[in-house]
Simulated scan of single mutants.
Amino acid sequence: MGLRTRTKVIIGIASGVVVVGAAAAIAGPVIYANTVNGQAAAAPSVSAGTSGGAGKLSASEADGTWTSTGDSFAGYRVHEVLQGQDVNVVGRTKDVEGTAEVSDGSLTKATVTVQVAKISTPEAARDEYFRNTALQTDQHPTATFTLTEPVDVSGALDGATQDVTLTGTMDLHGVEKPVTADAQVAVAKDGTVQVAGSIPITFEDYGVQAPSLGFVTVDPKGSVEFSLDLDK
């Protein structure tokens, strides 16, 4: 959608920015909402089947340190209401570094660091505001999730897609808060491991207010999403 028109309104939020320009006003909120919703990627989920089906790992094979590969990604999902129309915005990046340690069927340590300034959507103007104003990525270039409690992942090692709750901390915009993530874990046929899920966040907890400007209202809560492909 072209945004270089005579007028432009840029609205920032902690995990994303909604850009509503004159083009949106001319096309109408329904068309704008359909366009943005059509660009929004589905929520991440494990896809071990793409590597040939579910796999298994013995305890000795699973034990050790796992590192994210280039197929990993993370980002955000936010919801807004624009003149009565529901709009979902998703931003993502593959600039993610994750490590995980497994011992005796449990995930004992994990850290995921995301280069926030690299998160992008189909709208460059939205991304610029997100980086420069909303999250001030020149001062806070990364967001980091750190696991604080071990998690049993033996079901995934035995070949199942396992639902887990990851308890940890989120360091975002210079603020660290305790969080929990609903996630899935699965082993692919090639022996790699995928972890996918989301972390609900409240923007003001991280020092950013979700805007409400009459014609558009952004939810005060959103989610951080992630999909990690891990290899040893």
Rank of each mutant, 00 (worst) to 15 (best):
Y76E: 09
V9D: 13
A23Q: 15
D229E: 06
A160E: 13
I119F: 06
L172S: 09
L172Q: 10
F130L: 04
P220A: 12
G21L: 13
A143P: 00
G28I: 06
S103A: 10
D86P: 05
D104H: 11
T99Y: 06
P29D: 15
Q139V: 03
V17N: 13
T142V: 05
I13W: 15
G70R: 04
A25T: 04
S103W: 01
H173L: 04
L107E: 10
A40I: 05
A27L: 14
G55H: 08
Q162H: 11
L135S: 09
V78E: 14
T99R: 08
L157D: 00
L82W: 07
A74R: 02
P141E: 07
T133Q: 11
A24M: 10
Y129S: 15
V208L: 04
Y76M: 07
D219E: 02
S154H: 12
A59T: 07
G55Q: 06
F130A: 06
V112L: 05
P211I: 08
R92W: 02
G21M: 12
Y32P: 03
K177V: 04
T113H: 02
G214W: 03
V36S: 12
N34G: 11
G197C: 08
Y206W: 07
T7V: 14
F203I: 03
L213T: 08
G52Q: 12
M1K: 14
A43R: 07
R77L: 04
L166E: 00
Q139S: 08
S60P: 09
T146F: 02
V116R: 07
V153M: 12
V89Q: 06
T167A: 05
L147T: 01
V193D: 10
W66E: 04
A59E: 06
K232W: 03
R126T: 13
E101V: 08
S45H: 15
A134E: 08
S72D: 02
Q83Y: 03
V19Y: 11
K221D: 14
A25E: 12
V18T: 14
E123R: 15
K118R: 09
M170H: 06
A43W: 02
Q194M: 13
V18M: 08
S103M: 01
I201Q: 12
Q85W: 01
A27Q: 15
S15D: 15
A125P: 00
F203W: 11
G174R: 11
T144Y: 09
D171W: 09
G38W: 10
G38I: 10
G159K: 02
V30M: 11
V90A: 09
P200Q: 00
V164D: 01
Q194Y: 10
D205R: 04
T133L: 13
V18A: 12
A210Q: 03
T202A: 05
S60C: 05
Q39M: 13
V114S: 02
K56L: 10
T93R: 03
A43I: 03
L228I: 04
S72H: 12
A14P: 11
E97N: 15
A210E: 08
A134N: 00
A41Q: 06
P44C: 01
Q136I: 03
T167L: 02
I26W: 15
F73A: 01
S51E: 12
L172C: 11
H79R: 08
A156N: 01
D95H: 06
S227G: 14
G168R: 04
N37D: 01
V36L: 13
V9N: 13
